[in-house]
Amino acid sequence: MNIYLQLFSSFAKIGAFTIGGGYAMIPLIQREVVERKKWLDKEEFLDVLAISQSAPGILIINISIFIGEKMRGVKGSIVSALGSALPSFIMILVIAYFFENYKDNEIVARIFQGIRPAVVALIAVPLITLSKSANLNIYTSFIPIITVLLIVLLGISPIWIILSGALLGLFHFYFTRR
């Protein structure tokens, strides 16, 4: 099979079958790309993963762009990214079309009335694991608190806070490096 077609179908398969996105996708990608297709060895995959995680954007899109580029340059990266985005794009488009017409339906409204608070809980739970992995101490735990105050009370865009966080990290490194 044509390599572009292979890249497209491999990533489309991953995009179509991982619910929830993000970290749930990693084992699937590894099985497909390292074990089945043998496009990368395990070490290269871990490198790709590390860099894709630290770069901004959507993890699976970053990974597919990276692997596509390694295989066939820019063209390969476009085909791979398209493959991983297309299944959810089509599915959401269909859902959006129907949901926009049916969300005022009484039964749908009741179902979503129950779902909404649960979604807020789903967003709140990862906070616990995340604050552990961010290695917060007495000094750095002020950063998330200030972030919340700036966003919730003052309506400041997260973009500015992310940039300030990056600058703070750079200053800290500059003054403590020797």
Binding site: V120, A134, I143, P144, I161, L168, Y174
Partner: peptide
Amino acid sequence: AALKGIKPVVVGLIASAAILL
């Protein structure tokens, strides 16, 4: 180093998302 500074901000971002909802 820059990423290290962003990490605690991300914790705050997600907390704000939950609060604003």
